[in-house]
């Protein structure tokens, strides 16, 4: 049992160490390349975080205690969420319905961050939280419908079971596409970063944060971004991976799965990064409008699933 827990902790720790580097790769090889810049070094995100952690703790005079608790809680919750995703395609702690737990944990972590921002009483945070929650509501309709398709086709909501049973029908493929788009919306990259739009509302809910607390906020954001991406990879590409590795004996199989999932997550992460660089930021109404339009994809998927495709 101890070995199982230790293995789980190690898999999560490796991912946690890799996340800032992944951000660095995106900044150097995707953003800078497309914008014809030299770009920062790959470890730049680490340097930023280290610098922030060394800074003084500033708290606005109007803030309540929640201002300090929220960033730390938000970060740790998103780390706890990493334990729900089966990166080796089999989670010893998994159970029926951990997919819904994953969604709610993700919501918990992001609204904690929002509440932290709100507790500073800065009016920009209010605008930001209104935008973020509107986006959340719109994207959750998207997600709910896609999950309905997966539930209908897989008749299970256990992440490890979904990621290891291949079901390939038109409806499920459409649902996977919807999940990819969901990951794009939730990654809070350019077209959908309306909640922290720097030029408009001065980083929104992050406006009053600085120093170590800002570092926690940034880390939490990065972890959440990685979570939604890898959620898509595990649910949509996991079945294929497990099919490919099914002949390999057990201990090596899990390692192979882990490496493959990490690789695919990185690729998806960078692909979403590329898609974001070539977009400008949406206005709030356009962001919501686009999500509403694309909601037809999971709706069509659901209709297909209902008729048995």
């Amino acid at each position: 049992m101890v070995v199982v827990y230790l293995g789980l902790i190690i898999t999560v720790l490796i991912i946690l160490v890799l996340i800032p580097i992944l951000d660095g790769i995106e900044r150097k090889f995707v953003k800078a390349r497309i914008q014809s810049r030299v770009g920062p070094p790959i470890l730049q995100t680490y340097y930023d975080l280290i610098k922030l952690f060394r800074k003084e703790l500033l708290v606005p005079s109007t803030a309540s205690k929640l201002f300090i608790i929220a960033p730390i809680l938000s970060f740790f919750t998103s780390v706890a969420t990493l334990f729900v995703v089966p990166y080796t395609l089999s989670n010893p702690l998994g159970f029926e319905g951990d997919l819904i737990l994953f969604i709610y944990l993700l919501i918990f972590s992001s609204i904690t961050a929002l509440l932290g921002g709100l507790s500073s009483s800065n009016p920009f945070t209010e605008v930001s939280s209104s935008r973020e929650l509107s986006l959340l509501m719109a994207s959750e309709l998207f997600l709910g419908l896609s999950i309905a398709v997966i539930a209908l086709k897989q008749s299970s909501l256990s992440l490890s079971k979904i990621s290891s049973t291949p079901v390939i029908t038109p409806s499920v493929i459409l649902a996977y596409i919807a999940l990819l788009y969901y990951a794009f919306i939730k990654s809070a990259r350019t077209p959908y970063d309306i909640a922290e739009a720097e030029p408009e509302i001065a980083s929104g809910y992050l406006i009053e944060y600085s120093g170590p607390l800002l570092a926690f906020m940034i880390l939490g954001n990065l972890v959440r971004r990685y979570l939604t991406t890898s959620f898509f990879v595990v649910v949509a590409l996991g079945p294929t991976v497990s099919l490919a590795t099914s002949v390999i004996p057990t201990p090596i199989k899990e390692l192979t799965n882990y490496v493959l999932i990490l690789g695919l997550s990185t690729l998806t992460y960078l692909a979403l990064g590329t898609a974001s660089v070539i977009h400008g930021r949406y206005r709030v109404i356009h962001a919501l409008d686009s999500i509403r339009k694309y909601t037809s994809v999971p709706i069509i998927a659901l209709v297909l699933a209902v008729v048995g495709l």
Partner: peptide
């Protein structure tokens, strides 16, 4: 540790 209180930032 020492927490420094600052006024709200309004541009």
């Amino acid at each position: 540790y020492k927490v420094r209180t600052v006024p709200l930032w309004t541009f």
